[in-house]
Design a binder for these strands. Structure first.
Lengths: 225, 225
DNA sequence: TTAATAGTGTCTATTAGACACTATCAG
DNA sequence: CTGATAGTGTCTAATAGACACTATTAA
């Protein structure tokens, strides 16, 4: 093989909603470089392993799950000095996860935690992970507008109010419940009615339960206001 | 450095409009593997070179220019078997070029040609370049809707009719000239009037000349119909 | 009952698309 | 003049956003 050889890694921007806030999964680095600093989960790609497979493997290692999680390629970062050990190129992936059990199960990192993205100081992250996180959050915010990906933050069955809470958390401002309801329920293929309703309506009318539909482009989009 | 080392390349999907058709720049490979086959322009990243710089360098080498050309990262392709010589990861870039002189100047490829994308058989391209081209064209088509990037296909000064021809070529169907005119001229920041008008109006009223504005997100979008 | 949430209807200002119409050129 | 392209105005159906109103639960 001619020319330069580089190390190949994947890094993950795993987002979820916790307590009405958009949160990202961060791990504490257990080894140099940047030992002790917060970083995005990730690792090196194995020989013979496809990029997407590496991303799924790291996701499973760090979160214990992976089934039903939306994963898409975000961008690739390869500036010459981004890793002090030598030239390393990282293919970053964006993962949208439904709410899950408090601590991260099956993690092999020193510690993995959900941190509200607004509380993260990008400068304090290892490598160029602050930049990667910023790009990932912006991608997620944009995708809510013109795709049904908000539902990826919800459990398999969810209500319109649950979905609206996702939008409000990601965009950071409230939406009109009535107009939102009409918009998403009338968008063909966005939501599949299950026929069931919530039983635990604490002080309100029970809500219909939906599953994710098969639509992939939302036209017209839901606007960010 | 731990773990696997891979070769790092950039490949370019360079699009332009020629004779009302969306065309891509293809080169004929002069060396194995895939010698003689059509391929996207590209090459290996140099030591110490940033990914975007490598893309700009290859673009300049293949097209002779690069100034004023829109370039953005498309995606990264790294399936284990995609290069028979060994594991190679390619960061693909999308470039939108205004119409330029017929043959490609300053090219170091055996031959570089503009081919209408509808005439390209993806299966007949080297490596996984058929897939990369498909992804690039789809990205371009989508970006015309919600960004002012159509203007990247136009020369520095252009008319509304010229811009409309771009949209029609990329999307493959005609648009109403009057509604299109109103839409783009009333979108704040899309077009900058120069005050000048075309002189060579062969059989029609002279048209105003515009330059690209500073807007980056088109809201509301121009819909594909 | 009240408080809370789910969901529907309605009004208004805005917009997309269709297309009539005017403006300005070449020949 | 005719024919062509540039650009504006107008009409209509559809839509976004505001918000009144009904439905169904817990307490």
């Amino acid at each position: 093989m001619p020319y330069m050889q580089v190390a190949l890694a994947v890094d993950l921007v795993v987002l979820t909603i916790r307590e009405h806030r958009l949160c990202v999964l961060l791990v504490e680095r257990g080894i140099e470089p940047y030992e002790g600093l917060a970083a995005l989960p990730g690792g090196f790609v194995l020989p013979g392993e496809d990029l997407a497979d590496a991303a799924y493997r790291e996701l499973a290692e760090e979160t214990g799950i992976g089934d039903g999680i939306h994963l898409e390629q975000l961008a690739t970062y390869g500036a010459p000095g981004r890793d002090p050990r030598g030239r390393t190129v990282s293919v970053a992936w964006l993962a949208l996860a439904p709410q899950m059990a408090e601590p991260v199960a099956g993690s092999d990192a020193s510690g993995a935690h959900w941190i509200p993205v607004d509380d993260v100081n990008g400068e304090a992250l290892a490598f160029d992970h602050g930049l990667i996180l910023k790009d990932g959050v912006e991608r997620a915010r944009a995708k809510l507008e013109y795709t049904p990906l908000g539902a990826a933050f919800c459990p398999p069955e969810f209500t319109v109010a649950h979905l609206r809470a996702v939008y409000e958390a990601v965009w950071g401002h409230p939406l009109d419940p009535r107009n939102f309801h009409r918009k998403v329920t009338r968008a063909p293929g966005f939501l599949c009615p299950t026929g069931r309703v919530t039983t635990t309506a604490d002080g309100g009318r029970p809500a219909q339960l939906f599953t994710r539909g098969d639509m992939d482009v939302l036209n017209p989009p839901i606007v960010r206001g």
